[in-house]
Simulated assay, not measured.
Amino acid sequence: MDTTPLRHAHHALLEAAATVAGAGTADRPPSDGEWDAGQILAHVSLIDAATVAAVVSAASGAVTTYDNRVAQDAWTLGRVGALAGGEAGLRERVRLQGEALCALVAPLSEAELDTPVPTLLLSHGQVLVDRPMPLRDIVTGLAEAELPGHTKQLLALLP
C-alpha cells in the first residue's frame, strides 16, 4: 500500500501542532465542546495506536476490531498527555506512531488490506460507522479524513 498520503497527513498535523505551540496558543481554551491542542494530539495518538493494533492483528492473522470510543474519553486523553510528558511529548509520540504505522502498512498484501474489521466510529456522541470495514479503508480514512480534520482543528486554535 502506498503510504505517501498517510505520511503527508501526519506531517501536516505535526506542522500545525508545532505552529500552535510556537504561537503560544496550545493551552488556549477551545470553543465550547472542542479540544485543546494536547487533547487533540492525545486523541490522534490513541487513534494511531488503535490503527497500529488493527494492522498488526491483520498481518498476524488474528481477529481484530476497531473502536474509537476510548480515544474520545476526556480522562483518557488527559492521562495519555500526562504519560507522554505534555504536548511536546505527544507530538513526538504521534510522529513515531505515524512512522511505525506507515512501516507496518506498506508491506501488507491485498488480502490483508481487504481484511474486514468490525468497526465502531463515533464523533461527538454520534455513530458514524458501525459495520465491518476493510482494513485499507480504515487506513485511508485516517489519511484522508481523520488527520486532516484534526489538522484544521489545531489551526483553529490560532488567534
Results as ranks from 00 to 15, higher is better:
2 D>I: 00
5 P>E: 07
8 H>E: 11
9 A>T: 01
15 E>G: 12
15 E>S: 11
16 A>E: 01
19 T>K: 11
19 T>H: 07
21 A>Q: 08
23 A>N: 00
25 T>A: 11
27 D>V: 14
28 R>D: 07
30 P>D: 01
30 P>S: 03
30 P>Y: 01
32 D>G: 10
32 D>F: 10
38 G>R: 05
39 Q>H: 10
40 I>Q: 02
41 L>G: 09
44 V>H: 10
44 V>N: 07
45 S>Y: 09
46 L>N: 01
47 I>D: 06
48 D>E: 12
49 A>H: 12
50 A>L: 12
51 T>I: 06
53 A>N: 04
54 A>Q: 00
55 V>N: 11
55 V>H: 12
56 V>A: 15
56 V>H: 12
57 S>W: 04
59 A>F: 03
60 S>G: 15
60 S>K: 15
62 A>P: 13
68 N>C: 06
69 R>E: 12
70 V>Q: 15
71 A>P: 08
71 A>D: 08
71 A>R: 05
74 A>V: 14
74 A>N: 06
75 W>F: 14
81 G>H: 07
84 A>M: 03
84 A>H: 02
84 A>V: 08
85 G>K: 13
87 E>P: 05
87 E>H: 13
90 L>Q: 01
93 R>Q: 15
95 R>L: 13
97 Q>N: 09
98 G>W: 04
99 E>D: 10
100 A>C: 10
101 L>D: 06
101 L>I: 00
103 A>R: 12
103 A>C: 09
104 L>P: 03
105 V>R: 07
106 A>L: 11
107 P>S: 00
111 A>P: 00
114 D>N: 14
114 D>R: 14
118 P>C: 09
121 L>K: 08
123 S>C: 11
124 H>W: 10
126 Q>N: 12
129 V>K: 01
130 D>T: 11
132 P>D: 09
133 M>D: 06
133 M>R: 15
134 P>A: 08
139 V>S: 05
142 L>A: 07
143 A>I: 00
143 A>R: 04
145 A>N: 14
145 A>E: 15
146 E>L: 09
146 E>D: 14
147 L>V: 04
147 L>D: 02
148 P>F: 04
150 H>S: 07
150 H>D: 02
151 T>D: 09
152 K>I: 14
153 Q>N: 13
156 A>E: 12
156 A>W: 10
156 A>Q: 15
157 L>W: 05
159 P>H: 01
